[in-house]
C-alpha cells in the first residue's frame, strides 16, 4: 500500500489544465504539417497555416490555443494499492480544475442548464475513474470544447445494420456536421457495450495519438476506410471546402448485447488537447 496526498493530485490537475490548453501535442503539429502538404484548396491551405501559426503563438505566449478551453474531462486510472490521504478524490480534482482555470486565464464555460448562469470556476470536472492494478495514479486531462461536442451522438443501431450501417452513419454524420465542429477533426467512434459505454469508448478513442495505428487489424482497416470516405466529402478545413475534413478516425469496440449495436460518434476539433501525468 502506497500513501498519496490528494494535494498532489490537485496541483497536478491544475498544471495539466494549463498545459493542455497552451500546448498542442506533437502528434497534432505533425498532422497539421502533413495536411498542409495534401490539401488542394488554397483557402484550406491558408486556414491550416493559420492554425500552425496559432499553435505557435499559444505556446510562446502561454495563452489558450482556442478560447473555448472546454469542460475539463478528467480520466483517472487509480492503482488499487494506492491509499489516498488528506481529503476526497473528486474534491481534489475539482479544486485542481478551479485553480488551473483561474491561474491559467482559461475560460470558464460551465453553466446552469436552465438559467445558463455561469458557475464561475469551470467545475464540476467530468471525471471518469477506473481502478487498475498497481500503486500509481495516471491523470489525463482532456479539455473538450462545446462546438465539436455538440456535433456528437449516440445511436442504437439494429444488429442487421452491421458494419455497413455503422459506416453510413459515421460518414453521413460528419457530412451533416460540416464546418460546425471546426474541421479538420478527429472522429471518435465507439462501437458496442451499452448506451453509455459506447459514448465513453468514443471519447476514450480521442486520447490515442493521431497518426498511430489501431492495434486491432480489423478496426485499423475500418478506420482507414472511414477516413477515405470522410475525406471525399469535400467539407475541408473549417467547412469551406477541401480535401482534409478529418485527420483521423479512431475506433474503440467492445462486445454488445445480442439485441443491440450501439454506436457513438464523438467529434474532436483540430484543437485536440490532452495532457497526462503519472503520480
Amino acid at each position: 500500500m502506497r500513501e498519496m496526498s490528494v494535494d498532489h493530485i490537485t496541483s497536478t490537475v491544475a498544471r495539466l489544465c494549463k498545459e493542455a490548453n497552451y500546448f498542442l501535442g506533437n502528434d497534432m503539429l505533425s498532422a497539421l504539417e502533413k495536411a498542409v502538404e495534401v490539401e488542394e484548396s488554397p483557402t484550406g491551405r491558408t486556414i491550416l497555416k493559420q492554425l500552425q501559426e496559432n499553435a505557435a503563438i499559444a505556446a510562446a505566449d502561454q495563452i489558450p490555443i482556442c478560447q473555448d478551453t472546454g469542460l475539463a474531462v478528467v480520466f483517472l486510472e487509480l492503482g488499487q494499492d494506492v491509499h489516498l490521504v488528506g481529503g476526497e478524490l473528486e474534491a481534489a480534482v475539482n479544486e485542481g480544475v478551479r485553480q488551473g482555470y483561474g491561474e491559467g486565464y482559461l475560460r470558464k464555460s460551465s453553466c446552469h442548464p436552465f438559467t445558463r448562469k455561469n458557475i464561475g470556476d469551470n467545475t464540476p470536472a467530468i471525471i471518469h475513474c477506473r481502478i487498475v492494478p498497481g500503486d500509481q495514479l495516471k491523470i489525463t486531462i482532456a479539455p473538450k470544447g462545446g462546438g465539436s461536442e455538440n456535433m456528437s451522438k449516440v445511436v442504437m443501431l439494429k444488429p442487421a445494420d452491421g458494419v455497413a450501417g455503422i459506416k453510413k452513419q459515421v460518414v453521413e454524420w460528419v457530412a451533416q456536421a460540416g464546418g460546425n465542429p471546426c474541421p479538420p477533426t478527429i472522429v471518435g467512434v465507439g462501437i458496442g457495450g451499452t448506451f453509455e459505454r459506447a459514448a465513453l469508448l468514443a471519447k476514450e478513442s480521442l486520447l490515442r495519438e493521431v497518426g498511430s495505428r489501431n492495434p486491432d487489424p480489423e478496426l485499423a482497416r475500418l478506420e482507414e476506410e472511414l477516413l477515405v470516405e470522410i475525406n471525399k466529402l469535400g467539407v475541408g478545413p473549417q467547412g469551406l471546402g477541401g480535401r482534409v475534413t478529418s485527420f483521423a478516425v479512431h475506433v474503440k469496440m467492445l462486445p454488445c448485447h445480442i439485441a443491440s449495436l450501439p454506436l457513438a460518434i464523438n467529434i474532436q476539433c483540430h484543437a485536440a488537447r490532452h495532457k497526462e501525468a503519472v503520480l
Partner: peptide, 10 residues
C-alpha cells in the same frame, strides 16, 4: 462572415 475557428490566439 466567417473567421477561423480555433485560431483564438492568432
Amino acid at each position: 462572415f466567417a473567421a477561423v475557428g480555433g485560431a483564438g490566439a492568432l
